[in-house]
């Protein structure tokens, strides 16, 4: 992302959003959390100069070069990758998410010490890679049927002291207000994203952990396969939504 590129990327991105908007008017398909944000927040997300997530993307671009990723990959070749994650990891035959893949490259292919999942370096690298797919539709990996099934079961299972399932909020009550918060449909297409409440960039797993703890249930341990299974289901449920990384959310 040199300085002239964001503008071009942005108009392509806006065109794609306009298309998605037109589809929404026809009442078809899933609705991104973007659609229910205030005009101010949407403008903040749309303008790369005011979107604080773009700082992390720039940091990720620098890390991509400095940490040796560019020895094996180009930024161009990263276009489209995030749109089809989580994917099946050939070696382990298990689902792997984008941060998991980056961690694998770093630890197995570069023999370097692991980066903490929620640390700024991993978030920035993930944001940079995912940003290369901004404006592309999510394309769930067809090989993850089993993980999707597990993820859907988790999504529908009531849990925690409040005894609520993800589906009861995000399928049955999306668009209503939980105290002051508008309940979104719960789509994963903007991550890592900048959340005003966090005052920081955060991962999808952090978002899911917040929802799990919100119903007073025990969150899965960081990096647990349950998160990847949930993500595999969320991506299929959000099929056709466009990657927004780095999105803004309240």
């Amino acid at each position: 992302m040199g300085s002239p590129r964001p503008r071009r990327g942005r108009s392509r991105w806006l065109e794609a959003l306009a298309c998605a908007g037109a589809l929404l008017l026809l009442g078809a398909g899933p609705r991104s959390g973007y659609e229910t944000m205030t005009p101010q927040l949407r403008a903040m997300q749309d303008d790369d100069l005011s979107n604080p997530g773009m700082l992390a993307v720039a940091e990720g671009e620098a890390l991509f070069a400095r940490e040796g990723c560019a020895g094996c990959h180009t930024a161009e070749a990263m276009r489209g990758v995030a749109a089809r994650y989580p994917a099946l990891d050939r070696a382990s035959q298990a689902p792997i998410d984008l941060s998991g893949r980056i961690a694998q490259c770093r630890e197995k292919r570069q023999q370097r010490p692991p980066l903490p999942r929620e640390g700024p370096a991993m978030l920035a690298l993930t944001a940079f890679v995912a940003h290369q797919s901004r404006g592309l539709p999510l394309q769930p990996d067809p090989r993850l049927a089993e993980a999707r099934r597990q993820g859907e079961a988790l999504f529908r299972e009531r849990r925690g002291q409040l005894n609520l399932s993800c589906a009861q909020c995000h399928d049955d009550n999306a668009g209503r207000r939980l105290a002051g918060s508008l309940i979104p449909e719960g789509h994963p297409n903007g991550y890592p994203l900048y959340r005003l409440e966090w005052q920081a960039l955060g991962s999808l797993q952090r978002r899911l952990r917040n929802c799990l703890v919100g119903v007073r249930s025990e969150p899965f341990p960081p990096g647990a396969p349950d998160y990847v299974a949930l993500e595999a289901y969320l991506v299929a449920r959000a099929r056709g939504l466009l990657v927004e990384t780095p999105a803004i959310r309240p």
Binding site: G160, R216, E218
Partner: peptide, 13 residues
């Protein structure tokens, strides 16, 4: 109730 967080285990609201 299932998967209740450690801090809330076996406690009524």
């Amino acid at each position: 109730l299932r998967h209740v967080g450690r801090a809330w285990q076996d406690r009524r609201l």
